[in-house]
């Protein structure tokens, strides 16, 4: 669905590239987290996928199109296959919830009756039924982000790109947004989400692509926010400790997939590149694993 082949993007001649020979292949229907420090190239990745920028080298395929060969008058049509969500929502303050979502359809020339039937549907999907007439400033941050997601999704794009959609939201609200994105993902929409939100990434257990200084340094099929080793405090060997905790948790029967052993790390058939993490020993802290387990248990 989205395929970057050796993509390099330099914004200023002579400067360090924002993306440096990045190769990533995201299949249809995948849910992918893009993580990395600020300036690591996450947003550049999304902008390139949206054809807001053009790479200096390499090839990008999105939704079956080679973006290098996409002529500029075809860009609007191409973008209709992609939804985009931002950290700052980008709603139109003078328009109501309904109008904000309908706007996306109006400007691409959809018929009025089509708009009338589609918008309420998508508002219901994002859980905003009954709030059609509110204006953005009358909504909470989470609700505003739902409007933004509704607007991005109303035209049923095959890809949803999210640039830190939970960056302005508290953890509980963020969880709600993630559940919504997961639901959208289950309809077959490919979701790529750039994020700093460690908790969410660890919680969701989706594919994680980590960028650092414009390079892909990790691509885990069901990864966590940081590579395993980094999670741990450098305080000696806690293996035995954790092992006994794990045994305890396992007896409760809800830890499956939470703590990955060395073997379960990468291979789940998504065609990811090999993990760059060294063979991992069981070194997660007790607290952390317990927390995963607990939240899993809650949701289940």
């Amino acid at each position: 669905m989205i395929k970057f082949e050796n993509v390099t993007k330099v914004f200023q001649r002579g400067a360090r590239p924002a993306l440096d020979h990045v190769t990533v292949d995201i299949a249809r229907g995948e849910f992918v987290f893009l993580v990395g420090a600020s300036g690591s190239g996450k947003s550049t990745f999304l902008r390139l996928a949206l054809r807001e920028e053009r790479p200096n080298a390499g090839t990008i395929f999105v939704a079956g199109r080679n973006l290098q060969r996409l002529s500029s008058w075809k860009i609007p049509t191409f973008r209709r296959t992609i939804g985009m969500v931002f950290q700052d929502f980008r709603l139109l303050p003078q328009k109501t919830v309904y109008e904000n979502v309908a706007f996306a359809l109006q400007v691409i020339g959809k018929k009025r009756h089509a708009i009338k039937s589609t918008v309420p549907e998508v508002l219901e999907l994002v859980g905003l039924e009954g709030k059609e007439k509110r204006r953005p400033h009358e909504l909470s941050g989470g609700e505003q982000q739902r409007v933004a997601i509704a607007r991005a999704f109303v035209n049923r794009p095959s890809i949803l790109l999210c640039d830190e959609p939970t960056g302005n939201l508290d953890p509980t609200t963020s969880m709600g947004i993630m559940r919504l994105l997961e639901r959208i993902n289950r309809t077959g929409t490919t979701v790529v989400m750039a994020t700093h939100d460690e908790e969410i990434v660890n919680e969701m257990r989706k594919r994680v692509v980590e960028l650092s200084d414009g390079r892909v340094i990790r691509d885990d099929a069901a990864g966590t926010y940081e590579a395993r080793e980094h999670i741990l405090p450098e305080q000696g060997d806690v293996e035995a400790d954790v092992a006994s905790d794990l045994a305890e948790i396992k007896t409760r029967g809800d830890l499956e997939g939470v703590v990955s052993g060395p073997a379960g790390m990468d291979n789940n058939g998504h065609g990811t590149t090999a993990s760059q993490a060294a063979p991992v020993r069981l070194r997660a802290t007790r607290q952390q694993e317990l927390r995963f387990a607990a939240s899993r248990g809650e949701r289940g």
Binding site: L50, W73, I75, P76, T77, F78, R79, R80, I82, M84, R90, L92, F103, A104, V107, I108, G109, R151, A152, N155
Partner: peptide
């Protein structure tokens, strides 16, 4: 700018913008 930015994102044509 906000409107036109959104228009570009959702794939409005140059004419409409």
């Amino acid at each position: 700018r906000r409107e036109t930015g959104i228009m570009k994102l959702v794939g409005a044509s140059n004419t409409v913008i």
